[in-house]
Design a protein around this nucleic acid. Structure first.
Lengths: 343, 343
DNA sequence: TTGTACGCGTTATCAC
DNA sequence: GTGATAACGCGTACAA
């Protein structure tokens, strides 16, 4: 490759006896040429086998149509699905995505951002939790975050509070004697904290017997199993004979509990109801399909890109609206009734 | 943003009374400047708050450090993990990745490739199965594929044959009375077909009673469950009383079968041994940890990028080696012995 | 409707 | 060790 130099507007211009400008217009404003001249150029393009060079175009007009993404990892299904959906918006908006895996190190992520800015990205979507939104807000391009601390930047989040409230309410309607919430330590600024608040609020408001169990559940199945196993023993002894409604922070953790139960009893006992969160694949693949409060990942992703595109367009105007206040969009969760709540 | 124009080499040159050239050299060949002049420029950079512009650099020297990726989806854990690992090689090689989700449509993927080439990517990694390798081979940049048809392009694949052979061999050593392989229709050109060939070869060579069950298992849990459920009934009747060693095409499918068994019997019966493929999370999260032939996804990804980098470097030389023959790297699988083969 | 001339920000090629 | 100048390929006033 790269042996022969690439065909440029100049070559086409010489070949067709037009000027570079006319060739450029053929691409950007074809109606300003006569139909026959469009024909001539069109034929010359195939004849010479012209390939566009967007790098030159960017340098000339500044529009890269690049969006940067920093995402913590792709092991959690939530992240990989949301990335999938974000990338798929190419069909709608035409933006290309430069993706970095955040690695929990602030200085490294700053480096990623510098690199992204050097490539003249027009906006960024951040899912990584590493950098405070206050710092992100100072960047010279629009930022949209998804499901992370977002005080100073625009964001799209699931309505975690509503999700937690509905899940708890549903367990309560099933006349459980005690309601349990199992979660991993969660900072108050993170949207997912709403699940804990909602559980607590609902139980307090309705004067229900309940317990909130916060443990460091780790990221591996094994560490979660170790922790939840001990919580399970606690439940078995403390609430023996009572009907237990258990709302867990994720489907992964709900599945761990379900497995412990099925291994012990060969089935899910009558006195256990389980609700997970996320509607991730494991909730359907589990030994019994797990009822779950699903995040609408497709909408989260689409709204995030959509919001970002709006703000990027604003930047392209003559006099961009000054640092407008952050916009926070909220997407309602959707409940999936499955076998772990049907008794 | 973009209110104030960006600081350029020109600005720095004027400020420091050097020429643009010297500023450029400061970045690309600092040793050619005196230490004190490096100091002066260095200070000017922070003073003026210079931000590099890689787009201009690309236009001038042609090196984008971009690699294109076309991947079928991120719902299958294999793909999301491999993408994760590929993106993570940024730390090693410095290449940035432009990612497209292939959507099974040849013309659309061709469009993606045109777009990628317009951005002057230096190479591509293809996981999507849509375009024949013959066509890929004609592109003007190096290509590396992963786990797909690869006759005419370089590739990195798992040693599927070895994986299938070892899995079958292991089941045979457990003295199963009959060996079963369950798979979805797989074209012979795809590396994963080696699993079927290996199963068949091993059974034939060792004169073992066996059956290969190929069904369209679909992509949803529900469709797989429907198919495997009927296969399960077949196994229960056709091989009642016999010890069955079952090797499935993926952990997802192995999990479906395991669930059917546990739901029916409350546990995994003695006369069933199960081995999956991939070592995906479900193999650990299942109600019983599933024995599986794991792909070394980290190595697949690293070797793919590594191979691509080699070939891209070759292209940058004065006289690039002509269309060298495709290189096919093979990564051995690793067996994970878990509870579904331990009786 | 079409053309001229210059700008975008960096690197490469010579000189000195 | 440093500088002047010409690329790189396209967009865009401004003119015609």
């Amino acid at each position: 490759m790269a042996q022969k130099k690439n065909v440029t507007f100049d070559d086409i211009a010489k070949y067709t006896n037009f000027s570079k400008t006319t060739i450029s217009r053929y691409f950007n404003n074809p109606d300003s040429l006569t139909l026959e001249n469009q024909q001539i150029i069109s034929e010359a393009l195939v004849k010479l086998n012209y390939k566009e060079n967007k790098v030159a175009r960017i340098l000339a007009n500044g529009k890269t149509e690049f969006v940067g993404i920093i995402i913590p990892d792709l092991y959690h299904h939530f992240y990989s699905e949301i990335l999938n959906r974000i990338l798929a918006t190419y069909e709608t908006f035409g933006y290309k995505f430069l993706v970095f895996i955040g690695n929990e190190n602030e200085e490294t992520e700053r480096q990623y951002i510098r690199e992204l800015l050097a490539y003249k990205i027009e906006g960024m979507i951040i899912l990584s939790h590493t950098m405070p939104s206050l710092e992100l807000a100072k960047l010279p391009i629009p930022i949209v975050t998804i499901e992370r601390e977002d005080e100073y930047v625009s964001s799209v989040n699931t309505d975690n509070y509503m999700g937690g409230y509905q899940a708890t309410s549903l367990l309560s309607r099933h006349r459980c004697d005690v309601l349990i919430h199992i979660n991993t330590p969660t900072p108050k600024e993170v949207p997912a904290y709403g699940r804990i608040r909602a559980f607590s609020d609902f139980c307090t408001e309705h004067d229900l017997k309940h317990e909130i169990l916060i443990r460091e559940l780790g990221i591996s199945y094994e560490s979660a199993e170790a922790q939840i196993s001990s919580l399970f023993e606690h439940l078995e002894t403390a609430y023996a004979g009572l009907k237990k409604g258990i709302f867990l922070s994720s489907d992964t953790h709900a599945n761990v509990l379900l497995n412990l139960l099925v291994r012990k009893y060969g089935r899910l006992p009558e006195d256990y109801l389980i609700i997970g969160f996320d509607n991730s694949p494991i909730s359907r693949e589990a030994v019994l399909p797990i009822s779950t409060m699903g995040q609408q990942v497709d909408k989260l992703a689409f709204e995030a890109v959509s919001l970002l595109v709006e703000q990027m367009n604003e930047q392209k105007k003559r006099r961009p609206a000054a640092l407008e206040n952050p916009v926070h969009k909220v997407i309602p969760p959707v409940f999936f009734r499955r076998e772990t709540t049907e008794k």
